[in-house]
Design a protein around this nucleic acid. Sequence first.
DNA 1: ACAGAATAGTTGACCGGTCAAATAAAAAGT
DNA 2: ACTTTTTATTTGACCGGTCAACTATTCTGT
Lengths: 159, 159
Amino acid sequence: MSAKTEIEVLRDEQPLHQFLTFRLSRVQAKLNAQANALLQRHADLTLSKWRILALVGAAGQTRLSELARIAALDKGLLSRNLKLMIEEGLVVAKQDDVDHRVQHLSLSTKGQDLFDKTLPKMRERQAKLREPLDARELDALSSALDKLEIAADWRGDDV
Amino acid sequence: MSAKTEIEVLRDEQPLHQFLTFRLSRVQAKLNAQANALLQRHADLTLSKWRILALVGAAGQTRLSELARIAALDKGLLSRNLKLMIEEGLVVAKQDDVDHRVQHLSLSTKGQDLFDKTLPKMRERQAKLREPLDARELDALSSALDKLEIAADWRGDDV
DNA sequence: ACAGAATAGTTGACCGGTCAAATAAAAAGT
DNA sequence: ACTTTTTATTTGACCGGTCAACTATTCTGT
């Protein structure tokens, strides 16, 4: 019984393209491209901008740091995108007059309109994506994502 | 019964940060960072290089276009990374002598060694990631990924 | 045999996301 | 009051991934 090389084991038991993370990143890339195409076509938005639009909209009023915290988005990314969106008149920023560091962010009417116009399309997409999944799968997927997210925080110092 | 605005509906029923795709991209970003950190620490590899190493290793002998097809990786990405990996002596490229366009790729001994050295760490990580998931969840996650990948190919021309 | 399509791979341009440093203001400690 | 630390945001540098254009070679159809 000769020992198998790692490569043979991999080939036999779990080809790379079945690694959870590998598949995940493929799927995610595709979803990303899909969303970007959809947004471009309907709203002249990038995915990042759409997310920020939705986050600001849902929050009603926030600040950059809160968005970064809640959505785990990069501050730099937020700062740059918000700057653009403010220039485009989608978001309004109002300086706090007690703490001069913070800006209060909210959607302009234009931003709300764009959001209201776009959301149904995105909802429809979400529905299309969920459609092939039954309730049990959705549920399991959801809890699996939660657990993966937690496991992804672990820095494997012992491995 | 006043109609709710889209924003209210969103807030009530399905906040953005619960959108499947949003969570997916967050989880994926974290997993990515985790993998990169692990690889940096143990093997001086990027995630892309590791994947290519594993793909070439598992295939035994391939060509760029085959990798692109199988793994749905970008040709440019592959070309650049392979060029580096060939320089680093991890991969050997041998020109086909009938079709002068194609290069046959395989791992060098050094590449194999690196792969054999790294795979257990990566496997351990995969195991750690799967660990908190029960069989039902793993199963659902797997089939959900397949279904999502299919659904992600749909370009919503009717939406 | 030859023109045009297809295929393999490389390269350049660009863009989004990430990280770290810089700036600025406020809070906390002494 | 004054130095240090923390917090909020901006900016610069960089890197990976994507897309399109380009080169080189082979295949196909007439």
